[in-house]
Design a protein around this nucleic acid. Structure first.
Length: 635
RNA sequence: GCACCCGUAGCUCAAUGGAUAGAGCAACUGACUUCUAAUCAGUAGGUUGGGCGUUCGAGUCGCUCCGGGUGUACCA
């Protein structure tokens, strides 16, 4: 890993720490907007100036004098723009440093992090909103792994919810299907995807049917057959469908936790003890909430009901118990069984309640990221601020984080193209909310199929003589690359207004653009034979001025990757990984066009160019791995 | 009502309080006998929704107004 910024930060910190009250994180670096300013810059003089009420320029001047000649890899330091401290690289030393340190990875932190994502209701196949969730969660998890954390990926299954009861009711009561018929149905998740909106509308429009569904729900909870068996069967089949879809997108899980097990193991009773003990949960004195156990949400000064006056728990109770288990504060644990095995033997374990099952070391994270869309903010805030924070006080490292993101919506044009009628008012909206219940949603499978079809066409245009197998494999890679990139390129809190044209685009700011960059480098190496990277410090004076500028620009951008990943995790802004990767590719494509490799006669120059391509490929591949974007053989 | 989010080029979006607000798409001009044109070079396109303030410095922070979205049940 190339990290010049780390060395710079340390040098500056050593110089400043005794003199000013400053911490390491305040020393931030960026690449100046214009190259004439220098290679790397920091605004630390402004920061210090503000603290001690001095002029930034004077502080900067002092720093220049003190630091000149002291930092390896830096040949000159300038103060500009009233206080920007601009460093000029000793390029020869920088390149030498890179060549020696490129294998180094961040050290293990010893901190356990749980990332919960996906968590789709197990009653039908997945839609694009779910794919945004999983793509963000997976990229987050992989960035954390890279940064040295011990990461567990969880997927939570709400198998006792009303949504599952809806489809059980639909199949058994409304359609009158027998158990055998249900067991023999082909592709049940997709059937339910199509059928669920119908069941849902039936229930919504009819009080009797609604009552009947409620009865089914109750019977499932009481484990009464055939309702219970059918409900379990549906959950299992649908979850496997989700797992297989996500596996196609390079997204995997370690553990599945079922809501029914939280109920079965009475985990909330355990949580309730803790909460009552600390007086976090108490009997409300509000006459309207007489007999209810509540938690005071200070943010809005509201008493949130956790246990109803009739003694039953509300939905938030299960979430509280689960959250406490995740951070390891509950004092009670699930048992686990093997649920699924991937092609390469990796296993997913699923929670259970039988003592005869496995006692595995899941849960108990030092940091917990719960990836759920912004509509859950209210609940998540109560959990993190009113439950985890006060209970986790003794254990300083416990951190419960709602990783929030906005929903995926559809453009009105997209909804109409799918065959729905829209009112005039709806037509003028900028987007229409996705609803699995109403059937206004683009299914994950459908989108992937469309992407594959489109990329197949593009491949055939360019490579008419490829075998069908090769085309299949490449089309799949491109489709996945396009989708994964599309799902993380937007800011977390902007609504994606989904449009097929946009999502199916393979030009410009897209996954395939980036894949193309790396494929072309591979193509060069395929033609000239796998190259060997330079070992010793090369003579860089043979690079012309224009080439040198771009060359080191690319290396500097690469050297920011680790800081970039850290930023993405700490600020919960996964899109920054995507945009940094994209910028890198833009620079490389520029370079590729101007400076040939194979035909270059000068041996040293050729070696230098090869070195850049190797370094670029190594680092971009790393980013691809984190984003789950595959590298196609050719394009 | 209260809380949170959004408003930047025709469209979709970037910009970690920092230097001349950047990309892609669409439009227009140019580059394939060349390491793959899914690319590259260029032209055009902006009162960052309005106003006031804080700051050496504001698209970014604060206040306010306008427009849009979401959440806020003894439903899950």
């Amino acid at each position: 890993m190339i990290t010049i910024q780390k060395e710079l930060r340390n040098a500056l910190y050593e110089e400043l720490k005794d003199k000013y009250e400053i911490n390491r994180e305040e020393i931030q670096f960026s690449i100046p907007p214009l190259r004439k300013f220098g290679d790397i810059s920091t605004t630390i003089p402004f920061v210090i100036a503000k603290k001690i009420g001095e002029k930034p320029f004077l502080i900067g001047k002092q720093l220049v004098e003190k630091l000149s000649g002291k930092i390896p890899m830096i040949s000159d330091i300038k103060i500009e723009g009233g206080g920007f401290l601009n460093f000029i690289l000793d390029r020869e030393k920088f390149l030498d440093h890179i060549l020696k340190k490129r294998e180094k990875r961040p050290e293990k932190t010893g901190v356990k992090v749980i990332v919960e994502h996906t968590s789709i209701n197990p009653n039908k196949s997945a839609h694009i909103g779910h794919i945004r969730n999983s793509s963000l969660g997976d990229t987050l998890a992989k960035a954390l792994v890279f940064l040295g954390f011990d990461v567990e990926v969880q997927n939570y299954l709400d198998d006792t919810g009303i949504q599952v009861a809806d489809v059980v009711w639909g199949l058994l009561e409304h359609d009158g299907k027998s158990i055998d018929e249900i067991l023999n149905m082909e592709n049940l998740p997709v059937f339910l995807w199509k059928r669920y909106p119908y069941y849902s509308s039936q229930i919504a429009g009819d009080e009797k049917k609604s009552e009947s569904r409620n009865l089914v729900h109750k019977k499932i909870e009481e484990k009464e057959d055939p309702y219970y068996s059918v409900s379990s069967y549906i959950s299992e089949v649908v979850v496997k469908d989700h797992i297989n879809l996500m596996e196609r997108l390079n997204i995997r899980y370690d553990s599945l936790v079922k809501e029914s097990d939280i109920i079965e193991l009475k985990l909330f009773d355990e949580a309730a003890k803790l909460l009552k003990d600390k007086n976090i949960m108490y009997l409300s004195e509000d006459p309207e909430k007489k007999g209810c156990w509540v938690i005071n949400y200070k943010g809005e000064n509201i008493e949130k009901i956790v246990v109803r006056s009739n003694g039953t728990a509300t939905y938030i109770a299960k979430d509280i118990a689960y959250a406490l288990w995740k951070v390891g504060l509950l004092g009670k644990d699930f048992y686990f069984t093997k649920f699924f095995e991937y092609n390469d033997g990796k296993i997913i374990h699923m929670s259970g309640f039988n003592e005869s099952d496995l006692d595995l070391n899941y849960g108990n994270g030092d940091r917990v990221f719960t990836v759920i869309d912004v509509r859950q903010s209210y609940l998540q805030k109560i959990i993190s601020e009113e439950v985890i924070k006060p209970l986790g006080e003794k254990e300083k490292e416990k951190e419960y984080i709602h990783f929030s993101y906005e929903m995926v919506a559809l453009t009105p044009g997209c909804v109409e193209a799918m065959g729905f009628e829209l009112s005039d008012e709806e037509k003028n909206k900028s987007y229409i909310e996705v609803s699995g219940r109403k059937g206004i949603a683009v299914s994950g499978e459908e989108l992937i199929d469309k992407l594959i079809e489109k990329s197949r066409g593009e491949i055939l245009k360019r490579n008419p003589d490829l075998s069908n197998d090769a085309i299949d494999s490449i089309a799949r890679d491109i489709a996945i690359g396009a989708l994964r990139y599309y799902m993380i390129k937007f800011n977390s809190n902007s609504v994606i207004s989904f449009d097929f044209d946009d999502a199916l685009s393979f030009e410009g700011d897209t996954g395939p653009y980036m894949q193309y960059t790396i494929v072309r480098i591979n193509s060069i190496f395929r033609k000239m034979g796998e190259p060997v990277i330079l070992q010793s410090s090369p003579d860089i004076s043979i690079l012309g001025p224009g080439e040198a500028e771009l060359y080191f620009d690319i290396l500097l951008q690469i050297s920011l990757i680790e800081i970039q990943l850290d930023y993405a995790v700490e600020k919960r802004e996964i899109s920054s990984i995507a945009s940094h990767s994209y910028q890198l590719c833009q620079k490389l494509n520029q370079y590729y066009h101007q400076y040939p490799v194979i035909s270059e006669k000068n041996k040293e120059l050729k070696e230098l160019r090869i070195a850049l391509l190797i370094l670029f490929r190594e680092n971009l591949s790393l980013l691809f791995g984190i984003m789950g974007i595959p590298v196609p053989e050719r394009m």
